[in-house]
């Protein structure tokens, strides 16, 4: 059994105008020490997915269905008290903006030690030793003095290192990193990512990396999910998806990478923008932006506008797309016909 199993996760926000479906039928697994990437545009539901794993979605959001299983326990039905023992201890998080993540009025030491003391019965001295060790591991110069400093005395890169150190404090099984490098200076992004990767590998920590940087996902993760409008639309081994994306949306994303454009020409883009979750198009949510929606006769494929696509297997990947499903069907029938004609 996988370390983390997410089954049919369904998250909604009870807004005044009605319920908004932020996450629909999300399924994935994470093995011990595995690194999983979640990509998608802003508003696709990546962060909601990350926060719902530890039941940390802010009201009016709530988990409406499905389950999150971690190491045999069902996290989503756990009491707040029991969940607290998992949070920061066995599953920890790294947030997007290091400038906002640390409490400005508490010293680094306080913020590290409180985490240790919340989960273990240890003396301040022992806690301090562990904190120093982790600060040393994230390669912070003069860790001793950092403990007494306040967040405003440190740079963004330095703060993110401290946050990584806090995430590692209790030797967790999984780290959920929600766009850990987005808010950082470009020159530091690679450094921080490399550090995170190195530490995860060294301690055999599973990583759920949420990002919209496909480059980072391809370098760091072994498997990936592509999300669109609250649904997973393609998932599988990272290399396969990057090299041979099946879903038109994934293809569009990869095509939109600057290195895919011909020098001197405009960058490729996916036309239109992500629909509002409160007003999703019928059928496949991507169909208004999809370049493959038209059949040879110029008419949109009726299934795309009417039916939500289910998953089909394509190689080691799962894809939710009518077109891909049709192609696979066609291949299968062609093959069958070929077999019939040449027994």
């Amino acid at each position: 059994m996988a370390l983390l199993e997410v089954n049919h996760l369904d998250v909604r926000f009870a807004l005044r105008l009605g319920e908004v479906h932020a996450l629909r039928d999300v399924n994935f697994t994470l093995e011990r020490g595995e690194r999983l990437g979640i990509v998608g545009e802003s508003g696709a539901g990546k962060s909601v997915a990350a926060f719902s794993l530890l039941n940390l979605i802010a009201k009016p959001g709530f988990i409406a269905g499905g389950e999150v299983r971690f190491d045999g326990q069902q996290l989503n039905s756990m009491s707040e008290r029991a969940l607290r023992k998992v949070r920061g201890n066995r599953i920890s998080m790294i947030f997007q903006d290091p400038m906002m993540t640390l409490n400005p009025v508490l010293s680094i030491g306080e913020q590290m030690l409180e985490c240790l003391k919340a989960h273990r019965r240890i003396s301040s001295k022992e806690a301090r030793a562990i904190a120093l060790d982790k600060l040393y591991q994230v390669q912070i110069p003069s860790p001793e003095t950092r403990l007494d400093q306040y967040p405003h005395e440190l740079s963004g890169g330095m703060r993110q290192r401290i946050i990584i150190a806090i995430a590692l404090l209790l030797d967790p099984d999984i780290i959920i990193a929600d766009e850990p490098t987005t808010a950082l200076d470009v020159t530091i992004q690679a450094e921080i990512m490399a550090l995170l990767l190195e530490l995860c590998e060294k301690h055999n920590v599973g990583l759920i990396l949420i990002t919209h940087d496909l480059g980072v996902v391809s370098q760091v993760t072994q498997r990936m999910l592509v999300m669109y409008a609250g649904r997973v639309i393609e998932q599988g081994p990272t290399r396969e998806i990057i090299n041979d994306p099946q879903h038109p949306y994934t293809q569009g994303l990869i095509n939109a990478l600057p290195q895919m454009a011909t020098p001197g020409e405009k960058l490729n883009q996916i036309r239109g923008s992500m629909p509002s979750l409160s007003n999703l198009p019928s059928g496949c949510a991507f169909h208004p932006r999809c370049d493959f929606i038209n059949r040879a006769d110029g008419q949109p494929r009726p299934a795309c506008t009417q039916q939500v696509p289910g998953f089909v297997e394509s190689g080691n990947c799962q894809v939710a797309c009518h077109m891909v499903a049709e192609l696979i069907d066609k291949e299968a029938t062609d093959e069958a016909r070929l077999k019939e004609t040449n027994p």
Binding site: L54, L56, A58, E80, R84, K85, V86, R87, G88, N89, S92, M93, F95, Q96, D97, M100, T101, L102, N103, P104, E114, C115, A118, H119, I163, I166
Partner: peptide, 17 residues
């Protein structure tokens, strides 16, 4: 609503603290 409060929750700190 701030990030540091969310982060504190993600660290497993008690609500009282």
């Amino acid at each position: 609503q701030s990030d540091y409060v969310k982060f504190a929750r993600a660290k497993g700190i008690s609500m009282r603290r």
